[in-house]
Amino acid sequence: MTTLAIEAHGLVKTFGENRAVDGVDLAVRAGTVYGVLGPNGAGKTTTVRMLTTLLRPDGGSARVLGHDVVDDADQVRRLIGLTGQYASVDEDLTGTENLVLQSRLVGLSRSQSKRRAAELLENFDLTEAANRPVKHFSGGMRRRIDLAASIVVTPDVLFLDEPTTGLDPRSRGQVWDIVRDLVAGGTTVLLTTQYLDEADQLADRIAVIDRGTVIAEGTSADLKASVGRSSLHLRLADETQRDLAERLVAQTLDTTPHRTPEAGVITAPVADPDVVADLMIRLRAEGVGIDEIGVQRPSLDEVFLTLTGHAADDDTERSAA
């Protein structure tokens, strides 16, 4: 039997009429990275807040390393670390002060706290900012001090709510390295993200969540496979031929092509890459000009599009609903 670090059964949280989390099941194996992927408003933060004992579920149950998040909340708090979506350090205090505060609150002695703060600042490349108030930190530095504050003692399970949203690529890379290091040290990580490539890069398993429910779960490869073994990417020379081209794609590949936001681009799942040659011949015969054509493993963006019927960053449909 494998040990589960996090398990949730039918978690529900409602805010008035709004079912923010509507029956979420999760099973996260110890020592792995689990990605919770979903657009804005999907219910990621609400789920994390229930798992970290901050919010009482209205329905369902959840356990962290076997301890119930409601009945045994204090025990759960002894095992977890949390980096919330919004700045969770004190902006008026310096980097050192924040880390000493955090160290004292987990029970380290005064001298241990000072040592640990210095060590973390050094390891997170924040030594120069040690004596500056956090409000003067850059976005990347802020995220690092947030993370550092969550690991003053090594948590068994670490929750990261959108750890890289709004960061530049270099800072994102740094956060990813930190997560990988922590996992190598034995910590289980649950992270939420809106970025498909982030889940792809970091997570051993991914739950895709939309409107409070898990709509797909599996490894990155599983999810990609559910959309077809590979994916056709076709850019037309003349976008007015799109309808004709879509019909030809549908007939030849025996699938439904996806419309993408780009006018002249068609994507479609491909069961057998060989038939793409047939498609090219038919396009030529019907006089459809090709600007670019390729067959590739599907991206998580396409997975999301297929699963939800809307793009990951498509908010319009939600706010109208």
Binding site: L101, R104, V106, V153
Partner: peptide, 27 residues
């Protein structure tokens, strides 16, 4: 590069109610 603490830091017993209050007062 950012180097993290590979070394595990064990969690001590949580602070007493008084100690936690004073620490937060210090903040």
């Amino acid at each position: 590069p950012v180097r993290t603490v590979a070394a595990r830091v064990e969690r001590p017993e949580p602070p007493s109610a008084l100690s936690a209050s004073l620490t937060l007062g210090w903040r």
